[in-house]
Design a protein around this nucleic acid. Sequence first.
DNA 1: CCAAAAGTGTTGCTTGTACACCCATGT
DNA 2: ACATGGGTGTACAAGCAACACTTTTGG
Lengths: 233, 233
Amino acid sequence: MGSSMEHSVYKQYEKQYVAVDCVIFGYERDELLVLLYPRSFEPSRGKWSLLGGFVQHDETLGDAARRILFKTTGLQDIFQEQVHAFSRIDRDPAGRVISVAYYALIRIKQQDSDLVREHGAHWWPVSKLPELIFDHREMIESALRKLQTRAGSEIIGKELLGDRFTLTNLKKLYEAIFLREIDAGNFRKKVLSLGVLHKTAVKDKSESKKGAFLYEYRKDNDEQLEFIPFFKG
Amino acid sequence: MGSSMEHSVYKQYEKQYVAVDCVIFGYERDELLVLLYPRSFEPSRGKWSLLGGFVQHDETLGDAARRILFKTTGLQDIFQEQVHAFSRIDRDPAGRVISVAYYALIRIKQQDSDLVREHGAHWWPVSKLPELIFDHREMIESALRKLQTRAGSEIIGKELLGDRFTLTNLKKLYEAIFLREIDAGNFRKKVLSLGVLHKTAVKDKSESKKGAFLYEYRKDNDEQLEFIPFFKG
DNA sequence: CCAAAAGTGTTGCTTGTACACCCATGT
DNA sequence: ACATGGGTGTACAAGCAACACTTTTGG
């Protein structure tokens, strides 16, 4: 907006409830998971819900998403990205609420488990979601598509895995994100050819006798080397 | 949103002004254009602005975008797509307004010129934009990236060109969208290989002595053949 | 020794790109 | 006849997918 309206005279226009819903992705046991919590009151009691909240005057949508994430997982400085604004008039039976979906990537190990438990939240595999309220399933599906797009343009690794990981860890993560199998050899070559990972001297022997080298992101130069397409769903 | 709040008790939460800003793309003289109109009052008098308006209780964001588009161009049933929600707190100096950007593709010939003139609107080339208010430049840039993504996944043709067009018309449109030159022979082969266009018996002689065949979309079967990647920026 | 994951190499196919070349025709 | 866009063919390079093969080591 901008023109077609004088300043300070917005009074004549209607305001809306604006919410943010967070699709919080985690990764465990080779599966991509979403954090949901159960709805304990009508309507839709028993169904599951994304974590959400209303946007306040003094915060951006991103701020609101961060606030919600912090409140429910205790985590800060988390990668997140806007997905889409959902605005069906009757999407929330209790009132007209426009909701902007965000997705976030967190390391489940790092969450404040007490806080999560206190909210009754539960991790669900994206491939086996329970019944969800409102348009939350649609939000998760859109978020997953966004995540896939991003994972195809740059390496999503440390956000979900940790600072160091083996190439097999990364491959399994990508299989979880794209919901399909990937050739190990080709994946390895493709990822390494991008030159954004640095092989450490450390081997992880937890998943094989031989052990696999741990890799980390090259911190040095280029944050701008991103967005070289390297993987398509 | 959903849980964490009882129904009908949203009263305790703050409402927001929610606006929609439309990035209206047109195409003429081998250029991709955006419809802007001049701001005639302070602040930012003399700068240019997207067409926008506030969202009402009884309409979705898409409805609002359609309403604004109709009000300013007289056009209905226009292709449009949501771009992003912009929410910087001070993005509008006159008040806290969250704005969701949409882009639309229209055929300039079909617009209601009187209506457009009455609003003082003017078509600007995307590559030579004037100074814009607020975050409107950012909105246009995001919208263009979205348009490029979409144009790379399916053929954007009739929305901007008309029902029938030559392959050279389409190539020039793509050059305007991607802001770079494209090889004519390769473009032609790629587009035809998708099999979504049907060659008519009619030649357009307006642009060459030899004349070029007009193509149209195959209406018959498959709307689902879309989203086959066919062009990358 | 051998199962199992780590890691390397090879081959063939598909796709993209550059560019040469022929066609049709109004002036 | 020739300039101009329309349209086709070719040849090379890059990227990708399938899969064979070697390495390492705990049990």
